[in-house]
Amino acid sequence: MTLGGGTNLVPALQTRSLIAGYEPDMPIVRGVDLSVLKGELVVLLGPNGAGKSTFVKAIAGLVPIHSGTVHLDGQDITAVPVHNKIRRGLAFVPQTENIFATMSIYENLLLAAAMAPKSERERRISTLFERFPDLASRPSRLAGQLSGGQRQMLAVARALIVHPSILILDEPSAGLSPKIVAEVFTMLQDINKSGVTIILVEQNVRAALAIADRAIILVEGKLRHEGSAATLADDPIVAKLYLGASATRKAGVS
């Protein structure tokens, strides 16, 4: 990195000594310092119960932050309520129930588009439909009738409608078949290439490392290991210690 590179020096997202959890006396995230650079695709790994999900939910404003700070493009957003984070350019896609099942595809998108100026809403939705032709075929279909992969597409499409600077996804591959996982990950790579910083929580270690620039490993609510995705992917000790048996089993696949 060269000095004087300008904006690149300000992290897209930075947490400092972040402590968070549902109950005040029971922190699940126990002091995480993380910096994500603009344009990076970072994958957050770790065993079950490590606090990965809680960590990203705390950043999104869904889990109370006990102490520490979250900065977005250099601005402190720690106390910004959940519904205003999206207005600051931080989009979050929850793991489950991430679409409104009783509403149509179009209404799901329209809800998020409400943030954009009125004159732009329709144009943004039609741009998204061009990008996600699967959703465009019948926009009046109820989102609850979509397949798992289509739901994930809709959730991501909805997050993109406000042109976020950073997209955080909590296990987008959960419950999807390997073929659909590959599609979703390719889509995330494309989004990343278009300039959106991405943080991805994943259990699907190999597939995630294949598209990520950098990987972070959380264990027991703390940042335990950090390195380029390529290095981590080839580190058998890391895999064995932190990624669980699934990683070693899948090691030869991709």
Binding site: L62, V82, H83, I86, T102, L111, A112
Partner: peptide, 13 residues
């Protein structure tokens, strides 16, 4: 339908 998701989408609950 889902207050948490509504917040994420930008709705002031």
């Amino acid at each position: 339908e889902n207050p948490a998701l509504a917040g994420v989408v930008g709705i002031d609950v």
